[in-house]
Computed example of a mutant assay.
Amino acid sequence: MKYVVVIGDGMADYPLEELNNKTVLQASVIPNMDFIASNGTNGLLKTVPEGMLPGSDVANLSIMGYDPKKYYTGRGPLEAASIGADLQNGEVAFRCNFITAKDGKLADFNANHISTEEAKELIDTLNQEFAEIGKFYLGVSYRHLFVMNDVESASLKSTPPHDVVGENIEENLLKPYDDKNAELLNKVMCDSVKILEDHPVNKKRTVNGKYPANMIWLWGQGTKPNMDPFIEKYGLKGATITGVDLIKGLGSYLGLTNINVPGATGYFDTDYSQKANYAVDTLNDHDLVFVHVEAPDEAGHAGDITEKIKAIESIDEKIIGKLLDELPKFDNYAISILPDHATPISVKTHTTDAIPYAMCSTNGVKDNVNQYNEFSAKMGSLGTIEGHKFMKSFLDI
Rank of each mutant, 00 (worst) to 15 (best):
H199P: 07
M391K: 03
A182N: 01
P176K: 05
G90T: 06
V92S: 08
N277S: 13
D245I: 04
V289A: 11
I83G: 01
F130S: 03
L338G: 06
N226E: 14
N370K: 13
I309H: 05
I195Q: 08
D57T: 00
I335M: 06
D13P: 00
Q26V: 04
E129F: 08
H113P: 00
N127P: 06
G134H: 14
T159H: 12
I195S: 06
V201T: 14
L156E: 01
D304L: 13
K2S: 04
G43P: 10
K318M: 10
M379N: 15
I320L: 14
A276L: 09
V92L: 09
D150N: 15
S346R: 08
F109N: 08
G364E: 13
S158P: 07
L250F: 11
N60V: 01
D191C: 02
S141K: 12
Y333D: 00
K348F: 03
P49G: 05
E197V: 06
K204Q: 13
P54G: 02
M215P: 05
K318N: 12
E121P: 01
E307P: 06
N186I: 10
V207R: 14
P49L: 09
T270G: 12
G220P: 02
T125P: 06
M379H: 14
P344D: 07
N172H: 15
G55N: 12
T159W: 03
G134A: 11
